[in-house]
Design a protein around this nucleic acid. Structure first.
Lengths: 208, 208, 208, 208
DNA sequence: AATGAATGAGATTTCATTCAT
DNA sequence: TATGAATGAAATCTCATTCAT
């Protein structure tokens, strides 16, 4: 996906041989391949071939194919959690913080589209044991976002009668769906999409 | 998921032995298992075991495991396409037809949640050759929905400056996301969710 | 080992192609190879090659390589348990039943030397979970044998001051050791070895 | 096994960090692990981890994993050969030297139970090339022991009609079997077991 | 004397699919 | 209409060993 975009910054092509240290290169390649063909359809062989190392090297750094998936997932979730915290815990009216957070998660998602696609599509391929950690992280993220909506409702800035939970689910559905249709070489810029999504969300919650 | 709900109409338990003819039973079982564990994690053996037949029987009705997936997908898409046509081609203001269509697709999705979950999660597991048909169907559906939005915009019922494409993508993201959080034994009824989603959509597009 | 003996009954060469049904053939081949090179040194590939089938066939009948080992072990233990019961539960002086049982287990072991070698050498390669069943069977066997010694001691036929447990351990050590030195084409016949072993055992326990 | 016994002399815990020089520590750890889980089930990684060094260090001292096994084997066999020579070449009636040698090998075996267990269980894991040396050592040991029996028979101290070879095989079977049942924290002391084993052996060979 | 990243060969196992019956 | 034994290809993972430092 994104890796096919023209004009990418140099040194970020996961197909290349040696710009990144082996460990990071493996992760980049894995993310790109998982996004492209799916986790189950990507063999360890595929990954190491494109990364230009051997299987042994991969298992030196990651103890299982699952590890790569979890790492990808965690990396993105951590990033987004940090950004959300930074915005939500800032100052100003809750509604405006919500708008900023909504636009930001869209942009961040589009900036890490491979990771995002992998996260939403392939997380359920992890064994139950590993899903637990991942799910609780995702839940915390959702909770923080919902709390922001509720804060706005309690402050009288947003319509109180609509279920914050439902709104947040609906909104994040749209975010998760981005990978299905967004093309980096299309007309729409991430910021524009972020603004529109945030606008739709806020209008849905607006009073009057 | 839904198929495990208590109080279900008799004859719909895919685990049972003989209420449905073998062919339909296989499809029901497959949908249930694919939704539960994912396509790749479900073996043909799993399917025929739960359906109470042997592999030979399955290959008598379906020429490949992929067939089951495509069938599930097509079945749901056809149903939703028919319903959308019925609503969108009806009379009345475009905005009201849009509201009805939006609410309806939510309810229909929740009523066939296994199929829906499978469709969004596992479609990309089909080989490219089979994905073409599926994708074009999905695109036609999206187009029809978008046309309805644009009709409302041209009629002056909806805000014209927002990208109909973007709105529709955002909305269907929410619909596809339903499978990740909706629980049939939770508090929210499908109709209520449909109404809320439709309401959020319409407010996002409302004038003024 | 035994499978190299000249004059073996026809149709028992596990290397041959089709005298036995596939399942039994796999077990025979496995026993022969495990005895020859050890469990860990024998690959599934080795087994199926010599049995003239494919790996898939093996996994159709045995769910794991471990299964073969356990089957070999159980098969021999069951046989020996039955024979011991038949002799020990018979009539006559305990000392004479002990002599018969001792001679018999030697002969039986030599008659199934591959299985016996595998059992003593490779049992500890089973995962703990599988070893439990196997161990309890082996313990029951040991107990029955020891009870026979104690019966003779209580009847005044055998020296009472020597630990029955120790004697039985010592004796079965000798039996388990047979695989290390016995050659079917050597001078000693199984019956002769059995008689001698039983004689040594009885003299060790004799009164006076 | 023994290495876990409480009250052990200080500096013999193979798990500890630095009481022994690295080379000796590696051997002690290897013996303990091989005895516990078997040679094939113990990875070089396991060994160096427990010894607190890295793989490079191990390969500095031992050129292969096999080396460790052979070293363990040789160490024990050399020890027992020396002791046997000391006893068998001493003075007094052959029968009494035999009794002493028999009791001694039992005690020595129990005092080095890890090594003993490894030796009997895992020797056949060595490649053929390395087994030759080991086997010839073992054979020499067996010969010396058998010669002692024959000496007693020729001197008229022991029954001449029983095969010395067979008796020795039977006896050493019992010795090798010790590792399967002996527990250092059980009731029986090594010396007592040695006495009993020697007694059984001598009674089996006694005249009259 | 020791490190630890990397190799490369091989191991077990899974599974969709076929085919004779 | 259905069986189930058998295939064969591919997948994940393990591990003893090497080598530049």
């Amino acid at each position: 996906m994104r890796s096919d975009a023209p004009g990418r910054a140099p040194g970020r092509d996961p197909r290349a041989g040696a710009e990144l240290p082996v460990q990071a290169r493996l992760l980049a390649v894995a993310s790109s391949l998982f996004a492209e063909r799916g986790f189950a359809q990507t063999s360890v062989q595929d990954i190491v071939e494109r990364a230009g190392v051997t299987k042994g090297a991969m298992y030196h750094y990651y103890s299982a194919k699952d590890d790569l998936l979890q790492e990808i997932y965690t990396r993105l979730l951590d990033l987004q959690s940090r950004r959300l915290a930074g915005i939500a815990d800032g100052g100003g009216p809750a509604a405006e913080r919500l708008r900023a957070a909504a636009a930001d998660v869209v942009v961040t998602t589009l900036d890490h589209l491979d990771d995002a696609v992998v996260s939403m599509r392939s997380m359920h391929m992890l064994p139950e044991s590993r899903q637990a950690a991942v799910r609780s992280g995702r839940r915390r993220y959702h909770e923080r976002f919902r709390a922001l909506v509720e804060e706005g409702q309690q402050a009288g800035e947003l319509r109180p009668e609509v279920s914050a939970d439902l709104v947040v689910h609906q909104f994040f559905g749209g975010v998760h769906h981005l990978g299905t249709w967004y093309r980096p070489d299309g007309e729409l810029r991430p910021e524009e999409i972020g603004r529109t999504f945030a606008d739709l969300l806020l209008r849905g919650l607006a009073i009057g």
